[in-house]
């Protein structure tokens, strides 16, 4: 199985604070990885390095075997940020048209993909409204739509379930599982352990910048008496 994400002994510090220490992790094609950890564990820093926003102090990161800071590498990556504040004076169609343009998509393709994604994210009724009138949950849906617009092979979702109502959660979960069946690779960071348990092939738990657990979900919860939440708490509370 080919490796989509390869993180090899990566460290990153901000001043004296070690955000990520000696992280080694890989993600294979078609896999869903739940990237878990408490606040400040280093999840977002890792995701930012994966997207090439900045380079690690040491170690190497590659996406599809290429440097993530190359613009061409990001052609195959879709990203949804944790807190989504999109351009408030655009409507969802214009937002998707903008991001589609940035991905180099043609107008007709953008139109076609936009309509499909607007419908699938449940924003059909609000497609003419400016984003400044959207609720937080609606903005999350807009974020998902823009991340999927150019049909990326790798999807990186930072806290995708935040602010979503139960129905939207189920829709997003179904969407993610559908993408998996299409062979897409998905990495998402989350505090929603139940969602991770339901969807992920593997989980990686970070603590104080270090990877403390990286196992298939089936192995983690093989004992019928335990669940991911309990494992997570045990890992975090361990000295």
């Amino acid at each position: 199985m080919s490796s989509v994400i390869t993180i090899d002994h990566v460290s990153k510090s901000y001043g004296t604070c070690n955000a990520v220490s000696d992280l080694t992790l890989s993600l294979h094609a078609g896999e869903i990885l739940g990237f878990l950890g408490a606040n400040g564990a280093g999840k977002t820093t890792t995701i930012k390095m994966l997207l090439g926003f900045f380079s690690p102090d040491s170690g190497q990161i590659s996406l599809f075997g290429h440097n993530p800071s190359d613009a061409s590498t990001r052609q195959r990556v879709g990203f949804m940020p944790e807190t989504a504040y999109y351009y408030p004076y655009l409507n969802i169609r214009e937002l998707l048209s903008f991001y589609g343009g940035l991905c180099g998509m043609s107008s007709s393709l953008i139109r076609q993909r936009s309509e499909d994604l607007i419908a699938r994210t449940g924003l059909d009724h609000a497609k003419k409204r400016l984003l400044k009138t959207y609720s937080k949950g609606m903005l999350q849906r807009a974020g998902i739509a823009q991340a999927l617009l150019h049909d990326p092979d790798l999807l990186i979702l930072d806290e995708p379930f935040t602010g979503l109502d139960p129905l939207a959660r189920i829709q997003l979960r179904d969407l993610i599982l559908e993408l998996k069946t299409k062979g897409k690779t998905i990495l998402f960071s989350s505090h929603e352990l139940s969602e991770a348990e339901l969807m992920c092939d593997r989980v990686a738990i970070m603590k104080n910048g270090k990877l403390v657990l990286a196992k298939p979900v089936k192995e983690v919860v093989c004992d019928g008496n335990t669940n991911l939440e309990r494992i997570f708490l045990n890992v975090l509370q361990a000295p």
């Binding site: 090439g52 926003f53 613009a71 061409s72 590498t73 879709g78 989504a84 504040y85 351009y87 940035l102």
Partner: peptide
Amino acid sequence: DSRTIYPLLAKPASRTV
């Protein structure tokens, strides 16, 4: 400030562009 920079930089466009 509005964090729109993240999805922007995550797209396949160079910073110069």
